[in-house]
Amino acid sequence: MFQSAILSQSVFRAALPAVTLILLLATIFTLQPRAMSVFGINLMLNLAVPIALATMAQLFIIAINDLDLSIGSFVGLVACIGATWLNDSPLLGVAALAACVLAYACLGALIHIRRLPSIVVTLGMSFVWLGLAVMLLPTPGGASPTWLRQLMSFRAPYVPVPIVASIIIAAAVHYGLMRTSYGTILRGFGGNPQAMRRSGWSMLRATMTMYALAGLFGVLAGLALLGISTSADANIALRYTLLSIAGAILGGCEFVGGRVSPVGTVLGVLTLALAGSALTFLRISPDWQVGAQGAILIVVLALRAAVARKES
C-alpha cells in the first residue's frame, strides 16, 4: 500500500502538466470551436517556440540547483546580434554568438569555483547582456536574416508547425539529458553533488557543460524570436526570465534535487502561452493575461503540495 501511494504520486507529478494543458485546450475549444484548426493553433502558439527554447535553457540551470535571472536579456541580446551583425556580416555574427555561449560556460565556471549564488551573478549578467544589446542596437530596428525569417514563417498544410517544433525540442532535450550516459551524470550533480564528487566525476566540467547548453538554447531562442518578429529590440524578451522559471516549475521541475522534465516543461510553456488566448475567449480583459499565468502557477503548485502532503 505504501508503495502504491508513492507510485501514484510520481504518476500524478508526471501527468499534471499534461492534464493542465488538456483542460485549458478543452476550455478554449469549447468556447471557440473555430480555434480548433491548424490556423487557429498556429495563431495562438505563434510565440511558443522561442519561449520553449528559453525555458529549456532555464531547465539546464535548474537541473544543477542554480537559477538564471539573465536568460531574458540574453535572448534579447542574441536577437540584437542576429538583426545586426548576423544579417550584415554573417561570419562576425556567428563568432559573436559562439562567444555568447562561451561566456555562459565561463559564468558556470566562475559560479562553481567561487561558490557564488547563481541568482546574484546572473542578476548582474542580466544588466551586462541588456547593456551590450543597447549598445549594439540603441533603438528598435535591424532586420532578420532572410533565411531565418523564412524558416520561422514556414507553415505546412494540415499540421500546426509550432506544435511540431515543440515536440522536436522536447524530444531532443529529453534524449540528450534524460537518456544519454553523460546526461545522467549531469543530472546526478543536481541530485547529490557530494556523492558524485566522491565517485570521481568533475563538478566543474558538469557545471560548465550545463551553462554552455543554457547559452546554446538561449541563442536558439533569440534567433527564433528574431525570425518571428523580423526586427529586434534590446527589451524584446525581458519577460522571458520570469516566464521561463514559471514554465519549468509548471512542467514539474524542482528547484533543488535535480528533478527536471523536458517534456513536462514544454507542456508547461504551451499552457502559459495559451493562457492569454483562453482569457480572450472567456471575454476577460487581456489585462489579466499575466495574472492568469500566476494563478495557474499557484493552482498547480497547490495541487502538487496537497498531494505530497497527503502521501506523506
Binding site: 566562475l110 548582474g124 544588466f127 551586462v128 541588456l130 547593456g131 551590450l132 543597447v134 549598445m135 540603441p138
Partner: peptide, 14 residues
C-alpha cells in the same frame, strides 16, 4: 549611453 551604464552596473555587481 545607457548601454555602457547597464554593462558597468552588471560588472560591478559581479
Amino acid at each position: 549611453g545607457a548601454g555602457i551604464r547597464l554593462t558597468l552596473t552588471g560588472l560591478i555587481i559581479i
